[in-house]
Nucleic acid binder design. Structure first.
Lengths: 361, 361
DNA sequence: ACGCTTTATGAAAACGATTACGTTGTCGCC
DNA sequence: GGCGACAACGTAATCGTTTTCATAAAGCGT
């Protein structure tokens, strides 16, 4: 059961190793029948080329690396799913390194991937241009996800946080609310910043006389809960609240429920991300949906394009659209959908196909 | 900016490549000062050994592969998190291939990993002993997760589905319900089978005169919803319902709410998995928690042990305990916890740390 | 001083593939 | 019939490491 090498195949087929290589890879330079015979022998011996040996000479690993922060839940799964599917379709392998906290951590991981990958997918908010310059050799192409980096050396793929927030604020205002309060995310988070910008722009456009109203938050449920209580203490209570992400919106919702405030009757509420929980809280949360699997997929495809002709492939910047999902909490003229069982819209984002511990049937 | 090899380091340091290799790896066989000089030169040139070349000769890739089915949501993330953290701690890389549906698909993926990994972590319900024999060379050690396979060739690591279900049924019965109805999972799913067995055993033990009552399900919300309606149509309604997973319990809960049936007043309800949604439905769902990150972690550690001495490391079977989480839906003598914000128990399973699209702050 | 063990070091052989370059043989064409 | 082109195939170099083996220097006991 010793590993069978190309030599064994060659000997068995009565040819040289060169011919075996040609028959199995390029196809040219060998007669059709010799090629067939070689292939037969190869399968009979169940020969599988040694990946390391091959990539030593071809300088290709057919592997792409994904550097991800300490992500949780649906976001992580969907992202990987998108990446993995696209990668498999292209015959690429996926080397994952997740759960990074801090730049030093990410740098180590990035360096550890040196030479093991042909390209990188990077999602991290402590990654900037300087970081990349010193930790990523120029020779390995990379696609940055949701990054503020603007460089023509790297391709960047962002979710349209700005547009999504803008659209949601417009939606709330057009539903009749005269103002919108925004619960912000972490100050150093790129997504959070963009969402706030979208909020400000939409307010300026559709409610130019209403005051801008931003309270601090950090993307956690607890922060939303505190913000909710805080807002209820105001003399004229806000009419509508837009949280920078769903978890804060959920926290806020519980604060409102606890105080006996009706949503959306007394206050309208909306979040951002469309995490699965959003559909299950009572009442169901209006939010902005992000097609995360698509994000992963297109990131990989962009990287693959860069890999194919690293010469004249210009690393470009793209943005992925969001869509607003009007459920119960935003009030207004929504349709009276009771509860979405087995959601009809076949978006990959909303994955309540989740099974037990062991996977699908 | 051409890649710097060991030769460059050797020339620059005025030694042979052998010494460089020794200085950087074993440490023995070189003077302390030469070793230091070599290390200095190496860092100065920012030399990083070519992984392929190295593993060509050492026959080690320092990479482990993870073969996963088409998982969604929290389960997937937590599993990978656990694996990844443990892997990093051991200096191992993680090659992921997920989203497999069907045995053929899994076989292809498994074969594609040939030679790229030192060991495999496998979670898939269409993987059995025969499958492994024909698709996995005996030389590569593997750990099977949640698998029915009983073989001394492979290590198996299971969640204690049986024990968890048993404990939950006992809990329900001891809370005063005279019987429990079970909503089963897919017939061919190993977890589902074990959970049903646990249900049956607990019933036999603690309610020997109550009839066993199992209705079909498939782990999806929709099935739980249908089962819920179906159960309400019974003449004496069931007193307590235990669903084989949380998604079905949630579907069932919505069916009850729709019919105006009070939970837990009229009917008690419980699920399995403790998915994040469980905490957010109204009322919060009682369930059985599975420490998924721990599952991944110990799987990797077991594999690492196998890797270190493949000789006399006996691939053993282990089981990971569950814990029951009594929230509102199961009635009984639970404490009146209003809502768990920022959960105190620092379990890695309940990850509402989830952020926006861009990761943590 | 002299042999003998220890130790640092270098030269060279692996590892398993791809591929540039020869070599042969066959065919076509003048 | 000879000459050149081309196709099929083999030989050997190559990729960047690790590791065995040889060699030289140095320490050490007598």
């Amino acid at each position: 059961m010793a590993t069978v090498t190309i030599k064994d195949v060659a000997r068995e087929a009565g040819v040289s190793v060169a011919s075996v290589s040609r028959a199995l890879n390029s196809g040219g330079g060998v007669t059709a029948e010799t090629a067939q015979r070689i292939r037969d022998v190869a399968t009979r011996l169940s020969y599988v080329p040694h990946a390391a040996a091959r990539s030593l000479i071809t300088r290709r690993t057919h592997t792409i690396g994904a550097l991800l922060p300490d992500l949780h839940g649906e976001f992580f799964s969907e992202l990987i799913r998108g990446i993995d599917q696209a990668a498999r379709a292209r015959g690429l392998h996926l080397l994952v390194s997740s759960s990074h906290d801090g730049a030093a951590d990410a740098a180590t991981a990035l360096r550890a991937m040196q030479g093991r990958v042909d390209g990188m997918l990077i999602l991290s908010n402590h990654v900037d241009a300087a970081f990349l310059r010193s930790n990523l050799p120029a020779s390995v192409p990379a696609v940055l996800l949701n990054s503020a980096v603007k460089s023509k050396s790297y391709a960047v793929l962002n979710v349209d946080n700005y547009g999504g927030a803008y659209a949601m604020v417009r939606h709330l205002l057009q539903a009749g609310h005269s103002g919108v309060t925004f619960i912000a995310g972490p100050a150093d988070n790129f997504d959070a910043q963009q969402r706030e910008l979208g909020y400000r722009a939409a307010m300026a456009k559709y409610a130019p006389h209403a005051p801008l109203d931003v309270v601090a938050g950090d993307f956690n449920e607890e922060a939303g809960y505190r913000a909710g209580h805080q807002l209820l203490a105001r003399k004229p209570r806000p009419q509508a609240v837009f949280a920078a992400n769903d978890m804060m919106a959920v926290g806020c919702l519980y604060a409102f429920k606890e105080a006996g405030v009706d949503v959306p009757g007394d206050i309208a509420l909306a979040g951002f991300d469309d995490i699965p929980i959003a559909r299950y809280v009572t009442p169901p949360l209006s939010t902005v949906r992000v097609r995360i699997a698509d994000l992963g997929r297109s990131a990989l495809e962009q990287l693959a394009a860069l890999l194919e002709d690293s010469k004249h492939a210009t690393p470009s910047s793209h943005t992925l659209a969001c869509e607003i999902v009007a459920r119960a909490t935003c009030g207004g003229d929504r349709q009276a959908a009771p509860h979405e069982h087995a959601p009809k819209n076949a978006v990959s984002t909303s994955g309540n196909r989740s099974s037990g511990t062991g996977g699908k049937a």
